[in-house]
Computed example of a mutant assay.
Amino acid sequence: MATFVFNDETKKNSHGFYLLNAGGKFERFNENPVMLNNHDLAQLTGRWLNLRVEGSQLLAEPEFDDGDPEAIKLKGKVDRGYLRGASPGIVILAAEYRENPVTKDTDIYVTEWELFEGSTVSVPSNAGAITLKVYDSNRCIVNDSNVKCHVEDIIKLSISSTTNLIDKKMNEIQLTAEALVALGITKSADEAAISAAIVRLKAKVDTAETNLEKLEKKAREEHETRVTEMVNLAIKEGRITADKKDAFVKLGIADFETTKTTIEAIPVKQSLAANVKPIQGQGIPKDRENWTLLQWMKNDMPGLRQLQVDTPDLYEQIKKK
């Protein structure tokens, strides 16, 4: 059985528009899938079977009326390969302008339509299927020369209907009591008053967000200052070395309390001078007798300063080493 292509939605038909298969309504057609010859309502030649969409194409198979001599002739032409064209007769319900994804041109796309009948034809209107006939709402064929205007009128009506629907929905919007309080208006407020209230509320929100950003920035800066001071003190006390400063600052910014606890758990570095003080008149302790000035400065600078105060004579001796 031959398969006929009713429509290929990737192809622009001879009327200059694309017919989208997804927008087709086939319920009434499937109840009575009449097959005409060249859209002549007086030439019922059979019926269509297995109407379906495969990929971009709308397909069906013909079943000719064996009791009709004209139908038998057409069937013979199909069997012998002389008749291969099919044409849907449609009623357009909705259409719109869209950007063609391939050519990037603006083209007309019929997005909603009803299949009224299907005909065998000899002349296709595009490489995919096939000619096409358009019926108006009264099921009368639209003259081919008027099809484009007919479709454009439908587009205008679609745009107008959409705009009216939006306007209607906007007019039907009812604000709750909470919304009225938030906007500072009464239930009797008109559109201008509502718009002005929304603008005022938006300005307040913007101001609040700006102030919040300033507060958050100030809090971050104060937090970073507090962390830096804590780490600097830890270095001064000898709990950590200076090369660890950046790491502890980073940890402190992420988790101040845990970092503080960690630092406090590290013992303070004790000065050698605090544990071993030279005895007045007995000279420098034996374990440091050979220390040079550089060794004192490196190993115990606080102790060296203490020697300068408590035993200036010993300090002078160290300076000479």
Rank of each mutant, 00 (worst) to 15 (best):
L20Y: 13
E99H: 12
V249C: 05
N100P: 02
G118T: 07
I284W: 00
S14E: 08
N7E: 01
Y97T: 12
K204R: 11
A71M: 04
K214A: 13
Q317C: 12
S271D: 11
T258G: 12
K77E: 06
S160Y: 08
N126V: 09
N7V: 02
A129H: 04
Y97C: 03
P267C: 05
A247T: 15
H15P: 02
I240N: 02
M170N: 14
A60K: 00
A2M: 07
V110H: 03
L19T: 12
C140G: 13
S145Q: 04
V78A: 06
D313T: 15
V121H: 01
N32Q: 08
K187R: 11
I72E: 12
V91W: 09
L51F: 06
E63V: 01
E224L: 04
D40A: 11
K260W: 09
R80M: 13
R139G: 07
L51A: 02
K12Y: 09
K214M: 13
T131A: 15
L20S: 11
V231S: 05
G81K: 05
R47F: 12
D167G: 15
K260M: 08
L83Y: 00
W291Q: 01
A247C: 11
G128M: 01
I90M: 06
G118Y: 01
L165I: 10
V227N: 00
E289R: 14
K277N: 11
L307F: 00
R28G: 12
A129W: 07
E229R: 07
Y97L: 06
L314D: 09
K156I: 10
E264I: 03
N171A: 14
R139Y: 03
G55Q: 02
T103S: 10
R139C: 12
A95N: 00
I284Y: 02
M1E: 12
I266D: 03
N7K: 01
Y18L: 03
G81R: 07
I141D: 04
E114Y: 06
L215C: 04
K245W: 05
N32I: 08
A274L: 13
L93R: 05
T258H: 09
D40C: 07
R47I: 15
L44E: 13
I166A: 00
K286H: 14
R28C: 06
T45I: 08
T3D: 04
V276Y: 09
K217E: 03
L304K: 00
K77D: 08
V78Y: 02
V151F: 01
F116T: 10
V268C: 15
K319T: 10
A94Q: 09
Q306H: 10
V147Q: 00
A197T: 07
L165G: 10
Q295D: 09
I318F: 05
N275C: 14
A197D: 05
M1S: 15
T162F: 15
V78K: 00
A94P: 10
L58D: 00
N13Y: 03
R84M: 15
F64Y: 03
A234C: 11
K133L: 13
T262M: 14
E229Y: 06
T131F: 10
L19V: 06
T10V: 09
A265P: 09
R80E: 15
E9H: 01
R200M: 09
N275A: 13
G76C: 07
L183E: 01
T207M: 06
R52I: 08
D107S: 04
E229L: 07
G67Q: 14
T261R: 15
